[in-house]
């Protein structure tokens, strides 16, 4: 499929188009500080950032459960303010917190969702049967949801969001609070979704591995702003193939300036706490370490390794993401 000069797939609207979107809560808390991005049909798009970065508020505005203070957003071509019902009809969302009716059975929860999204009864039955099988819920679906484990409940929620066959699926921190095994099961499941369905997925996460594994592109969100937006590969390449991490007993800012002046570090080198990170870009680690010692700093630990998204995030924001 080709993309036109205006960024639109021929004949199809952008899945999501966000321009200058801003949210200030009562009391003056600016959760989203004017962001712009587009998501293409069929893309898995990640919003990566720590708690409080503005990811969930962004999802809230796109699902019309949070009113924007300024800016515009379109979901599958529907303006979230002017045509919120259209935007909701084209999408589904799995919120960060579990929101299924615990006293009802899984099947009842799925049926209610199907009815609310206007799925005809006959096709709802077929779709539910299919999804229940695919998500391994067959043995559970007629039990009250209160009896499900956390992972089973999460699977049900994702299954429920698919009953209406949404064009755009929002997954807000879908694996948060789950144990590692269930988390990886769910990641497989979400990965399969994009293989099997021509569906656009917007995923928020503060887990780097999730973003790297699932997303075509990642918007790095910090303090309500998008500070970088690119493919995971391109984001990683921005730091070159290898970085040197030095723990030093010295003024790290002065050391960084010293390395820059002597051509051993560029603008992409950064320091946090007592650690200085220098993208090597072809130079030897030994050369950099010699220069650090020449500066008079005591080096207590050194590591050379390929950069991770955490390094990218750290360079962009000066804050480390939770692992």
């Amino acid at each position: 499929m080709s993309i036109g000069r205006n960024g639109r797939a021929h004949g199809a609207p952008l899945a999501i188009e966000v321009v200058g979107l801003r949210k200030t809560y009562p009391g003056g808390v600016e959760a989203v500080a004017g962001i712009d991005f587009t998501v293409f049909p069929g893309e898995v798009f990640g919003l990566l950032g720590p708690n409080g970065a503005g990811k969930s508020t962004t999802i809230g505005m796109l699902t019309t459960t949070v009113a924007p203070t300024a800016g515009t957003a379109r979901v599958a071509g529907f303006d979230v303010v002017d045509d919120p019902i259209g935007a909701r009809r084209a999408s589904a969302v799995v919120f960060q917190e579990a929101v299924v009716d615990g006293s009802l059975t899984g099947r009842r929860n799925l049926e209610i969702h199907a009815r609310l999204w206007g799925v005809p009864r006959a096709s709802a039955r077929t779709t539910i049967a299919d999804i229940v099988g695919r998500f391994g819920l067959s043995d559970l679906v007629d039990r009250p949801v209160d009896t499900y484990s956390g992972g089973q409940r999460r699977r049900l929620e994702i299954a429920r969001s698919l009953v209406s066959e949404p064009r755009v699926l929002f997954l807000d921190e879908p694996t948060v609070g789950l144990d590692p095994r269930i988390r990886y099961e769910l990641l497989d499941l979400i990965g399969d979704l994009r293989m099997e369905n021509a569906m656009t997925i917007v995923l928020t996460t503060h887990y780097l591995d999730e973003a790297e594994r699932l997303c075509d592109r990642i918007a790095v969100v910090h303090a309500g702003e998008i500070v970088a937006l690119d493919t995971p590969t391109a984001l990683l390449e921005s730091l070159g193939p290898e970085i040197l991490e030095l723990r030093v007993g010295a003024d790290v800012d002065a050391l960084l300036s010293y390395l820059r002046v002597h051509g051993h570090a560029g603008d992409d080198a950064f320091a946090v706490g007592t650690t200085v990170t220098v993208p090597l870009r072809g130079q030897s680690a030994r050369g950099v370490i010699d220069r650090v010692e020449e500066f008079g700093a005591r080096v207590t630990a050194t590591t050379t390794r390929p950069p991770s998204l955490d390094d990218v995030y750290l360079r962009l924001t000066g804050t480390r993401l939770a692992a």
Partner: peptide, 21 residues
Amino acid sequence: TVVTTPPTKLQPIASRERGST
């Protein structure tokens, strides 16, 4: 803010028109 080219592996947005609720 760095915005680059879209990914190459895109699929057409699925047509799932159905009557409104």
